[in-house]
Amino acid sequence: MKLIRIFFRNVANAFKSIVRNFSLSSASLICTTITLLVVAIAIIVAGNINNFTRNLSNSLTMIVFVDSGATAEEIAQVKQGIESIKDVKADEIIYKDKKTLKEETLENAEKGSTIYTIVSTWDDNDNPLEPEFIVSVKTANKMEKTADTITSLNKVKSVKYSEKVLEKMIPLVEIVEKVSICIIVGLIIVIVFLIGNTIKLTIYSRSEEIEIMRLVGTSNNVIRLPFVIEGTILGILGSLVPIAMTIWGYTICYDKLGGIFFAPAIKMVEPMPFTIYASLILVAIGAIVGMLGSYTAVRRYLKV
């Protein structure tokens, strides 16, 4: 009961204190808001780079042509062989037999065209099309190795994939992705220092209050509590403007650009739920940094 009373009293006191120390609270708030705005931009950029890389990776496929004379048993063995390769998405392997390929060709060809006329004359025995597997792979830089492994399988005639350019591009994008994550982490560290120092300044100006608390018999944990709550509140309040800018600003950008960034291949992440996740990250950073900043700043004035 006592602890609950202390907690709620301190929550109330934290709000009162924010109002009473308005100028210092405003300084912390502005500092948090500005730094979190930078983080918001970094999160949006990183999210989109990540999305771009993921889209590229997901579209990595290769076609495995099987010898047209292969029996059903041999085709099953080829499939097993492909499935056993680590870098292959085993549950996404698509098999197309001669008949399916013929139907697809007819569907895609214009009626009355030469191709249509020729293909339509083929029956099951003289269909020259080779059965094929469409195989999705997990990582771009291992495509060549995977293709070689598949080629070595019995009854596999050839393997084709056209993502040679992507194969070279993806590692580059991955580097950009890693760099953007490093930038975010770096920014968070800078923010911890910036917000932490602003809070330290606030607490320094209230060191007498801490001294009085100690002298009237307040435990160290209870001394910390109002400052920690206040830091958390300021952190959360400081994240509100960046959150609003993230949701509102990004949605507008997305609509104006039509969801495409410069080139059709670079699709932007849809605003929902992306901006919600980004907002949650922002509020969490604000709250945690505010809380830890206050905790460590108060510690300096406690004889612990």
Binding site: R214, L215, V216, G217, T218, S219, N220, K303, V304
Partner: peptide, 14 residues
Amino acid sequence: PNSKVYKLRRKLGI
């Protein structure tokens, strides 16, 4: 100990 000084101070007036 430092962590218990507050208990002593509650018994004193300064």
